[in-house]
Design a protein around this nucleic acid. Structure first.
Length: 852
RNA sequence: GCCGGUGUGGCGGAAUUGGUAGACGCGCGCGAUUCAAAAUCGCGUUUCUUCGGAAGUGCGGGUUCGAUUCCCGCCGCCGGUACCA
């Protein structure tokens, strides 16, 4: 392309406009109380999911969502909103740490380099970010407040009565013991089995395990003392409060399923002197329970096992322990288990049923014990067939159902006092019956687990906590931020001791306390960054009350951020974690809304030209820098929006980039022409004349459609309408300059450099034009009258098939249109020989003549 | 298995939410310009066709004057999830 002559000098004017916006702080927005703040304007908060600044730089997936929000930002500004549109860096993370391990260089340096690369790349795309509000999760003044929020969690508990977080001091006042208080904190310490990776030197969240395993790292389960966050306390609210959010239904469902509420009952069985509680969602099938299964790790297993079977049980248990979760499911085609020799008594009928252990029952869910109803549960059914256990039918399926193992709702049979009741009634009755006798109760269970919040890495926020005499305590708020010390060597310790434990000077405090050496996971910083943007420089508070009230409230929605755009990969975890923190801070009175994000949009993945996921190994990665180099930032932006609907997965096409590039060149040539020396001058076709009817129609139809499409985030169709409009204007002998300016205004949010450049050039040539930049103008309004036509084309159908097209006066009423249609010769020829039964007239559209 | 999404020309995708299927762009073909090419401009481009038309939105049914759109039953692809009791 270097040798090919550029069709318009984007490489000259794009950097100039970027500099102009930066120098003039065009897109900086003041806070309430700041100079230049206009309190009469409504606010609009547009947020992108901030990136992890990886060493490989931006890829074309990033600018997809970023361009969409950028268009909205520029559009909303023109519509008179104060728009907050910030960008920042989710900069803690393992890659920087691994780089540090290899080179001995502090991860901060590598991180900073990557951030600089990313920022430069984004700026070269001309995004309207308020760079004064840049946030970096690793910056000391950010870490300070992340740790501060952690202390809020540490110093709060969940009050079941109010369903809210309350300060822990309430419990102190009530005289709770230290132990009881520690048991109720939202941030607490627990000994739990975790995924430990010896070669990474850290534990991994369950959802991270597969990723690292596939990279060749080993991961094993072992119990470790860990910090946990009590997100389970919020399970119900996290489900309920999704309702009023403007999120894709699929994402809401994903979150609901992840939280996984199930309604059922706990039932107490006895085994000798011991009581075992099982959880079931089908208490109505209690009469059909023919055996019981305990998870192999269940604490009662050793107690109840018959001595003669001890060896076999031990052998089975160790076999299960050796399996990873993955293997446990993969190898589970066949159900395995083993009889303990013990019998449990079914409380409902005093029947003795055998007790097994089997790895299809998990310790982590419910009570780790089930009553097995092989007639109505597929898993129990499979197991019972393998072990030749009795199967008793207790639910009669509705007529017509032939399932071998019926799991739906029906009518209770063979169930004593429940017989004859519907499943719903039976559930209710048995729950009442159990409760009256203290043998069980209705309960709700959630799949959601508490959040494993500690990592053994170096490059994360240290916990603002120290230990003395086996107890933890929070360090004082004015010691924040607590930063990790520099290390000579960032290698993991090789055992579950966190890397920070190597910094003994830092760990050991004068009074004999020891600092906590775990660090927080990467999620911590991303849980609240959207709040910090509102008030980045604040040294007294994580966000001022005024800034919070303005940017995060004020519009009657449950969520503070008006629009949040990012990938589906964060549909569950990030969004759930952020909602959780937000709710805690809301409960404690720091925030005005119960939810962080009101409207959520997920952009679709961009695939390589081959239709495959972009990856280095496939060699199909498109580098945005190359695209900018060849076609300019405006072309990249426009192409990303023109590819198709934002939410959809779609393949990249360089030919497509060329297509929008050609469109931009057409817009350029609509205004500019080459003189004899080959310099760009304003085209002679541009005039100050008033646009004619046809030009006005094309233009105003475009104003209407582009406005509507931006609101609906249908950017691809907005662009195609602007293409149509450009083609119309290009056809004119004389092009009215006012029409061109309006078109440039509409195109400005999409292609800001080109449009500002042309606008500036036109302003110099025509005195009548404003010299203001397009970014600071009002969005054009369309005039309905211009859209109106005297005559419209109507389709004439006979029996649903198009036979003719006729022009009718646009104000013609139904009868007239019907008459004109029936007069159509072509239609006549198809009606000939048959009788007209019915005529349907759709005003402005068509006439359908039904004849036979 | 379950949950969600999706299926329209050679390709990316449009279609006022029941009313002309294929807007816009890519690609391709023809023409203009050019010594020639690139770039640019114009015209054409769903398929078949006896040039009258006929068929056509994954497949099979249905509702309707009329279905890409609504209903029932299948199939393919993509994503998530996995013994959750």
């Amino acid at each position: 392309m270097a040798q090919r002559r550029k069709q318009f000098p984007f490489d000259e004017f794009e950097p100039q406009w970027q500099k102009h916006w930066e120098d003039n702080k065009t897109f900086s927005v003041p806070n309430p109380g700041d100079e230049g703040f206009d309190p009469d304007k409504p606010k609009y908060y547009v947020l992108d999911m901030f990136p992890y600044p990886s060493g490989s730089g931006l890829h074309v997936g990033h600018p997809e969502g970023y361009t969409a929000t950028d268009i909205i930002t520029r559009y909303k500004r023109m519509k008179g909103f104060n728009v907050l549109h910030p960008m920042g860096w989710d900069a803690f993370g393992l890659p920087a740490e691994q780089h540090a391990i290899k080179t001995g260089e502090h991860p901060r340096i590598n991180t900073q380099n990557n951030v600089d690369t990313f920022r430069g790349q984004l700026q070269r795309l001309g995004f309207a970010y308020d760079w004064n509000r840049e946030v970096n999760t690793t910056a000391p003044d950010y870490v300070r407040w992340t740790q501060w929020i952690f202390l809020k969690l540490y110093n709060s508990y969940f009050n079941e009565d109010t369903q809210k977080a309350h300060p822990i001091s309430e419990l102190e006042e009530k005289g709770f013991s230290r132990e009881d208080i520690d048991d109720r904190r939202l941030a607490f310490v627990a000994e739990t089995p975790v995924n430990w990776s010896p070669d990474l030197g850290t534990v991994l969240a369950n959802e991270e395990v597969e990723e690292w395993r596939s990279k060749g790292h080993t991961v094993e389960r072992r119990p470790l003392r860990q910090w946990m966050l009590r997100i389970t306390a919020y399970a119900q609210r996290l489900i309920d409060e999704l309702d009023n959010l403007d999120w894709p239904e699929g994402i809401k469902l994903l979150q609901k399923n992840w939280i996984g509420r199930s309604d059922g009952a706990e039932v107490n069985f006895t085994i000798g002197d011991e009581t075992v509680t099982v959880f079931t969602t089908r208490p109505d099938t209690l009469f059909g329970a023919t055996y019981m299964v305990l998870a192999p790790e269940h604490p009662l297993v050793d107690k109840i096992t018959t001595p003669s079977l001890k060896d076999q049980i031990e052998e089975y248990k160790s076999r299960c322990a050796a399996k990873s979760d993955l293997e446990r499911t993969e190898l589970a085609k066949e159900k395995t288990g083993i009889f303990t020799g013990a019998y449990a008594v079914n409380p409902v009928n005093e029947e003795k049923i055998p007790v097994y252990i089997a790895d299809y029952v998990m310790m982590g869910y419910g009570t780790g014990a089930i009553m097995a109803v092989p007639a109505h549960d597929t898993r129990d059914n499979e197991f019972a067939e393998n072990f030749a256990i009795e199967i008793i039918q207790v639910v009669e399926a509705p007529e017509g159902n032939e399932d071998k193992c019926f799991t739906g709702n029906g009518t209770a049979i063979n169930s004593g006092f429940l017989s004859g009741l519907s499943t719903e009634e039976a559930k209710q009755k048995i729950c009442d019956w159990l409760e009256e006798r203290d043998l069980g109760k209705g309960t709700v269970n959630y799949k959601l687990r508490d959040w494993l919040f500690s990592r053994q890495r170096y490059w994360g926020e240290p916990f603002p906590v120290a230990w003395k005499d086996g107890n933890h305590y929070a360090i004082s708020e004015d010691e924040l931020p607590l930063l990790a010390p520099e290390l000579e060597d960032y290698k993991p310790t090789g055992n579950p001791e966190p890397t920070l434990s190597k910094a003994t000077d830092w760990v050991e405090l004068e009074d004999g306390s020891l600092r906590e050496t775990n660090t927080m996971p990467q999620w911590a910083g991303s849980c609240w960054y959207y709040l910090r943007y509102c008030d980045t420089g604040n040294t007294d508070r994580f966000i001022s009350e005024e800034a919070e009230a303005y940017w995060m409230g004020k519009n009657g929605n449950p969520g503070g951020v008006d629009l949040y755009v990012g990938g589906t990969e964060h549909a569950v975890l990030h969004l759930l974690y952020a909602r959780f923190w937000h709710k805690v801070l809301f409960d404690l009175g720091y925030l005005s809304t119960p939810e962080p994000f009101h409207k959520l949009v997920n952009q679709g993945l961009i695939l390589g030209e081959d239709g495959q996921k972009m990856s280095k190994s496939r060699g199909n990665v498109v580098n945005p820098d190359d695209v900018v180099e060849q076609y300019g930032a405006d072309s990249l932006r426009l192409y990303e929006m023109f590819m198709g609907p934002l939410e959809q997965v779609k393949p990249w096409s360089m030919k497509g980039v060329e297509g929008v590039f050609r469109f931009l060149a057409r817009v350029w040539r609509l205004v500019m022409d080459n003189d004899q020396e080959g310099n760009w001058v304003i085209s002679e076709k541009i005039t100050e004349a008033e646009p004619d009817k046809k030009a006005n129609k094309a233009l105003h139809a475009t104003i209407k459609k582009v406005g509507e499409d931006i609101e609906g985030m249908a950017f691809n169709t907005a662009i195609s309408q602007m293409m149509v409009c450009t083609n119309e204007l290009t056809k004119l002998e004389k092009v009215p300059v006012s029409s061109v300016i309006t078109l440039l205004q509409l195109l400005n949010p999409f292609a800001p450099h080109l449009t500002e450049e042309l606008n500036a050039r036109l302003a110099k040539a025509f005195d009548s034009l404003s010299s203001n930049g397009l970014a600071d103008r009002e969005w054009p309004q369309f005039i309905e009258e211009y859209l109106h036509e005297d005559e419209i084309e109507i389709v004439v159908q006979v029996n649903g098939k198009v036979r003719d097209k006729i022009n009718v006066p646009s104000e013609a009423d139904k009868d007239e249109v019907e008459k004109l249609a029936l007069e159509s010769e072509k239609a006549q020829s198809f009606i000939e020989g048959s009788t007209v039964r019915k005529v349907i007239v759709v005003p402005g559209r068509l006439v359908n003549i039904v004849a036979n």
